[in-house]
Deep mutational scan, measured.
Amino acid sequence: MASQGTKRSYEQMETDGERQNATEIRASVGKMIGGIGRFYIQMCTELKLSDYEGRLIQNSLTIERMVLSAFDERRNKYLEEHPSAGKDPKKTGGPIYRRVNGKWMRELILYDKEEIRRIWRQANNGDDATAGLTHMMIWHSNLNDATYQRTRALVRTGMDPRMCSLMQGSTLPRRSGAAGAAVKGVGTMVMELVRMIKRGINDRNFWRGENGRKTRIAYERMCNILKGKFQTAAQKAMMDQVRESRNPGNAEFEDLTFLARSALILRGSVAHKSCLPACVYGPAVASGYDFEREGYSLVGIDPFRLLQNSQVYSLIRPNENPAHKSQLVWMACHSAAFEDLRVLSFIKGTKVLPRGKLSTRGVQIASNENMETMESSTLELRSRYWAIRTRSGGNTNQQRASAGQISIQPTFSVQRNLPFDRTTIMAAFNGNTEGRTSDMRTEIIRMMESARPEDVSFQGRGVFELSDEKAASPIVPSFDMSNEGSYFFGDNAEEYDN
């Protein structure tokens, strides 16, 4: 783990906690998980779902989305002020799938948001429990990260689609708070800032007046979040320049895209947490497990152990491969979309394939898809080993990566060399080191050039047997250095459309 220093740990961010010791953190995270579980059980009762239907990941996603929508204050306010045809701002819903006479049927349900809020609060001892809501947002974000390569979004903001390893959390809503900021990748933060800068260039009043003052505060806050992700002084200094700019424009845009590229080699610290679907927490609570009393951590053995003992089902389209669908969801559960496939294969105990080789589309089923041909199958979400999630980018030494994705962002704290394609990355730096950030740029390029592919990161860190909950005997895996390590390699994943 990167030293926490003055930073709060993510469990504290996750639970809005002030400084807590490890036991208190485990208890408050457990409380959050228990609340999600209780809410899910109650919703299944309301909807009269069978046990099997309640364990269907598509039903879980609909129920999670309903509660997130019920608590989305800004959108609710907007919907009330701008009524649109056929949208009731006070209601929320989605597809629920039921097994009827041996076939899967889709039923569109509609609930009062007020009623959903009441059920959620009741499951969370009367609190709004925003930490639990954020947790579900991060699960949705991790699922998107594993399912889609955001080529269009990258290109629109002047970045290269091969930089997708920097895009963790790119679909997280803005209201996801400190826990959300911690899991956002460098590219995601750059993209958010670039969008602001572009608006400022096109709209003279963007930075002016009372609204402009708020915009400015948001801009500086985002700059500080991004600065905190960088691990070298030169990158941090460049972020200070971007933040202090009187009138952010093209120079800042250039600096930010430069920094994003540099992060492929001088990786930023991005938190990883295993956020599971509500249909995993519900049955665990129903079986009598007391998360608050037992304590829970999002970055240790607990999620692995929970998945070892969970039964989750998914709808499967006619030509999809259930094992591939399982891999997709497994990666999402562990926030591992940008991790090295060699490491993932070792931990999972079966070969993890790149996205383009998977015969599976996303987990969600569109409303126009034919239910007649839908089957369902068990998702295999178990693992051979477990490993500690990392909050750091690993040290800054790398190795060759593949054509589709030119770097990785480690999820697990496991000893290995970190793949990246130096030639491709360095070719993108057209040696432009003039301007006010020239000395920093020169320094950053120097550090990137001296990074050695064969150097090892996370020295001495290994994986653990599932029986080793105290992480007492690390097993340090050895990897084939020459092997392909990137998930979005030469990829044809669908595009994420909101």
Rank of each mutant, 00 (worst) to 15 (best):
M1A: 13
M13C: 03
T15H: 14
E18C: 12
T23W: 13
K31I: 13
G34S: 11
F39K: 02
M43D: 05
E46G: 09
L49H: 10
S50Y: 01
S50E: 10
R55H: 07
I57V: 15
I57L: 14
S60V: 06
L61K: 02
R65H: 08
R65E: 02
M66Q: 08
V67S: 15
D72C: 06
R75E: 08
Y78D: 11
L79D: 02
P83T: 12
A85I: 01
K87D: 03
D88R: 00
D88Y: 11
P89I: 11
G93P: 03
R99M: 08
V100M: 07
G102N: 09
G102E: 12
G102W: 05
W104N: 14
I109K: 03
Y111W: 11
E115N: 05
I116A: 05
R117G: 09
W120L: 09
Q122V: 12
G126S: 10
L133K: 15
T134R: 00
H135F: 03
M136G: 00
L143A: 09
T151F: 02
T151P: 03
M159I: 15
D160Q: 08
C164G: 14
S165V: 02
Q168T: 02
R174Q: 01
A178K: 14
V183D: 09
K184I: 07
V190H: 02
R195V: 14
R195A: 02
M196S: 11
R199I: 09
I201V: 09
N202D: 10
N205I: 08
N211V: 10
N211F: 14
G212Y: 08
E220G: 12
R221P: 04
M222V: 12
F230G: 04
F230R: 02
K236V: 01
D240F: 08
R243M: 13
N247F: 01
P248V: 10
G249I: 08
G249D: 11
E252L: 03
D255G: 10
L259D: 07
S262F: 11
S262E: 06
A263T: 12
H272W: 07
K273Y: 06
C275M: 02
L276T: 02
V280M: 13
Y281E: 07
Y281H: 09
G288K: 10
Y289I: 14
D290G: 11
G295D: 06
S297C: 09
V299Y: 08
Q311D: 06
Y313P: 07
S314G: 15
I316D: 00
R317E: 02
A323M: 13
Q327T: 05
L328K: 05
L328F: 14
V329N: 01
W330C: 09
H334N: 12
F346Y: 09
K348E: 09
T350N: 03
K351P: 05
V352W: 00
L353D: 00
P354R: 15
R355S: 10
K357R: 05
K357P: 00
L358Y: 05
I365L: 11
N368L: 06
E369L: 05
N370Q: 13
E372W: 08
S376N: 15
L381G: 00
Y385R: 14
R389W: 12
T390S: 15
R391D: 01
S392G: 15
N395M: 04
N395V: 04
N397H: 02
R400D: 03
S402C: 15
S407D: 00
I408H: 00
Q409R: 07
T411H: 06
S413W: 11
S413I: 05
Q415R: 10
L418N: 02
T423S: 13
T423N: 15
M426A: 13
A427V: 13
A428M: 15
A428Q: 02
E434F: 05
S438M: 05
M440P: 00
D455L: 15
V456N: 06
F458Q: 01
R461K: 15
D468Y: 12
E469G: 13
A472P: 02
S473I: 14
I475A: 03
V476T: 12
S478N: 05
Y487Q: 04
Y487A: 04
D491K: 07
N492Y: 11
D497I: 11
